[in-house]
């Protein structure tokens, strides 16, 4: 970065920005840290539920994680979730990218109509029964596709991506058009290589949505072998509030508080794994490489 010659004003600016980030960090991290501590605290130490639980416990316990990981359905549920995520991200991008690209063409005849067409279903939520009739009508009950298809195009993602496409220098596309390139060629060879940040972002949004979606799974999946991870977590976490009559201790090792806390980190697993890698594309100046290369 060559623009580091600091004027006094810029130094103040830098100081304010950095301290602001540190402040955000603290505000974000303290409660999360507490949740993490809760997830590794053995049950004997759990008496103190107040905010005092910021220091690591005397003895770390992975019981809560073990409880999830050794659940008889854990492996199959994780596998189902991975499948759903892969199909969801794939289908989501496959449908979102061309739609967003078409919407971003400023002089397309019928552009307005197309926008309206996309926005209407975004604004009007028909509710449970009308959607259920369609999905089961397609014969999707008890198929993983039933939880993939309903969320495959998210209008918010379409608009965000379209917006990014619109911001790309128009001259690049024009140049390709003058060279006689087809639209698909322009999309793949000119637009997409410059759009990594938004592709990753939208892909991430889809991935997180599918990883954590339980609603459609409750509705459309009955077969135990098809249940994804969020259903497993939900069953475990809600048991505390609904089973008064537990005579058998299903979860003897870890307390509810720890299980709840541990579930947070399972829910955010794809993010935790993928985000550090994505971050490389999230630094100032990414575009310049694309433009020149």
């Amino acid at each position: 970065m060559g623009r580091m010659r600091k004027s006094p004003g810029d130094a103040v600016f830098q100081f304010v920005v950095d301290n602001y980030l540190v402040l955000v960090l603290l505000v974000m991290v303290i409660p999360i840290w507490r949740v993490f501590m809760l997830s590794v605290t053995p049950q004997v130490d759990l008496a103190d539920r107040t905010f005092g639980m910021l220091v690591p416990p005397s003895k770390w316990s992975l019981a809560a994680y073990r409880q999830f990981l050794t659940h008889p359905s854990f492996l199959i549920a994780t596998w189902n979730s991975v499948l759903i995520l892969a199909m969801g991200v794939g289908l989501g991008l496959f449908l979102t990218v061309p739609l967003a690209y078409v919407l971003s063409i400023r002089n397309l005849p019928g552009r307005k109509l197309l926008h309206t067409f996309i926005l209407i279903p975004f604004l009007f939520n028909p509710g449970l029964i009308p959607s259920y009739l369609v999905v089961t009508g397609l014969g999707l009950y008890d198929r993983l596709l039933a939880v993939v298809i309903p969320g495959a195009i998210n209008v918010y993602n379409v608009f965000v991506m379209k917006n990014f496409f619109e911001g790309l220098p128009e001259e690049l596309k024009e140049a390709a058009r003058i060279d006689g390139a087809g639209e698909l060629y322009i999309l793949f060879k000119v637009v997409l290589p410059l759009s990594k940040p938004i592709l990753l972002t939208v892909g991430l949004f889809y991935g997180v949505h599918y990883w954590n979606d339980f609603f459609n799974a409750i509705l459309y999946l009955g077969d135990a072998r098809l249940q994804p991870l969020p259903i497993l977590l939900r069953n475990i976490l809600q048991a505390a509030n609904f089973n008064d009559y537990v005579d058998i201790n299903v979860f003897s090792e870890a307390r509810m508080e720890s299980l709840k806390a541990a579930s947070v980190f399972l829910a955010s697993l794809p993010m935790i794994l993928v985000y550090p890698w994505i971050q490389r594309y999230f630094t100032k100046g990414t575009l310049s490489g694309g433009l020149k290369g």
């Binding site: 008889p72 009955g222 135990a224 048991a239 537990v246 058998i248």
Partner: peptide, 13 residues
Amino acid sequence: ELWITGTASEAGP
């Protein structure tokens, strides 16, 4: 086909 409330559904089918 049987839809039933399990004894403790959190334990798995």
